[in-house]
Amino acid sequence: MIAVTLCILALADASFSGFRAHAGRDGRIDKRAAKANAAAIGAAAGAGTLIALGALILGSIGIGLTTYDGLVDAGGRMLLAYVIYATVVACGFAGYFSRWLEVRSLATMLVLGPGTFARPAVILAGAVAAATGGSASVGLLAFIAAAAMLLIEPALWLWFDRRQESTMIPFAPAPRRFPHRRH
C-alpha cells in the first residue's frame, strides 16, 4: 500500500515536471494537446525512474543490504511528508479550476507558485524523514530516490529545449541585418 501510494505520487509529480518543462517553451495560444503530451512524457520519465529505483531497491533486499520491513517503515515516514504536500497542492488545484478569477488568483499566488518553489525542499524532507531512524542503506536509497525525482525536471528541460526547435525556433527568424551605424 505504502509503495503503491508512493509510486502514484511519484508519477503525478513526474507528469507535473513534464508539464512545467514544456511550459514557457511553446508560444501558441491553444496548447491543450501539447500540454497533455508534455504531462505524458513526464509520466513516462517518472515510470522509467520508478522502474530503475525499484530494481535498485529489490537488489538491495536481494543482497541483504536492506530488509523489506525496514523499507516499508521508511516508506511510511516518507509518505507522510508527501501526503501533506500533495493535499495542499490538490487544494490549490481545486482553487485553480474555480469559476471565480479571484479564487484562481489566490490558488496560484498562495499555493501553486510557492508549491513549485518548495518542491525540492519537500522532496528532500521526505528523504530525511525516511532516513531518520532507518539503517544507513535505507537512508542512502531514500536520498537516491529523492535525487532521481529532482533530476526528472531538469532532464526534461533539455528534452523540451531541444524540441523547442520544432515549436519555437521556426518562429524565431534568422538574424536580420539592420543598417549598422558606425560609431
Binding site: 508560444g27 501558441r28 495560444i29 491553444d30 518562429f171
Partner: peptide
C-alpha cells in the same frame, strides 16, 4: 522590437489568428 514582432506574426499565422 522587430524580432519579437516577426515571432508574434509567425505564431499568429501558425494558429490562423
Amino acid at each position: 522590437n522587430r524580432t519579437l514582432l516577426d515571432a508574434a506574426r509567425a505564431l499568429a499565422d501558425a494558429e490562423q489568428l
